[in-house]
Design a protein around this nucleic acid. Structure first.
Lengths: 119, 119
DNA sequence: TTCGGTACATACAAATTTGTCCGTTATGGG
DNA sequence: CCCATAACGGACAAATTTGTATGTACCGAA
């Protein structure tokens, strides 16, 4: 999120795992604290920055920005800036992110089931 | 993993998110660095500690132990200790973890696809 | 001309995760 | 009696993620 040291064991391990396991790779892409919450909010269409901020209780602007930047870099959300003042920016899911939705819903059901089991 | 401070904003946020989003909850359960790799190795049946260690390149015994402990606590793996010397312990997926397998395979395909897209 | 709203950026600090190194236990073989 | 082995446990340190506080640009409205 900030800069990472090249060639720490930590980073090398991460790289190795991401290369050798597509599943870990996939999970890492949505692994930030707020990423899935953001993506969920976007399931029904575009939202602008402030709408996301208001929709996600507890997130700070810094975190929202950071996570959106990564999602954008990873091709999961598309950012559109309108040349207006005050500025307007909106975010939407990319096609590859949309492909995740049916998988999410299964995973989400699993989560709900697991949650009950544990109690 | 080590102890966590109760009532840091960080922890409170995590709790809140896990409660309000089953999807995030599910992803967090397998979110440790090595967890998915471990679970994948167990897909075809029991393995003992040393077999896991040897199967997963780069993992240290400490990390393997920690991640296994959490997986056990979360009911994703079952640990069996045999009263032998030297000790023998094996690990296997629980039923709820087995239910994840078909979802994983979809997610894994998605990961592979995404990986190509990005290149 | 100061003010307000939007979408950030930046410096810094706290929390958490991951990794390194070394110790432990019990016993059958030599 | 000494040692090797399997499966850990604990202290400590490095790396990384998350959170806090504050500042920026822009322009139209008051």
């Amino acid at each position: 999120m900030g800069k990472r040291k090249k060639s720490s064991t930590n980073l090398l391990n991460e790289k190795y795992i991401m290369e050798s396991c597509d599943l870990t790779y996939a999970v890492c892409k949505v692994g930030g604290r707020w990423k899935l919450l953001i993506l969920c909010k976007l399931e029904n269409g575009k939202l602008r920055y402030s709408e996301l901020r208001n929709a996600i209780d507890g997130i700070t602007e810094r975190m929202l920005t950071l996570q959106l930047r990564e999602l954008e870099k990873d091709g999961l959300v598309k950012r559109t800036v309108y040349a207006e003042v005050p500025p307007r920016v909106d975010y939407e899911l990319t096609p590859i992110a949309i492909e995740l939705i049916p998988i999410w819903s299964k995973l989400s059901s699993w989560g709900a089931k697991h949650k009950k089991l544990v109690k």
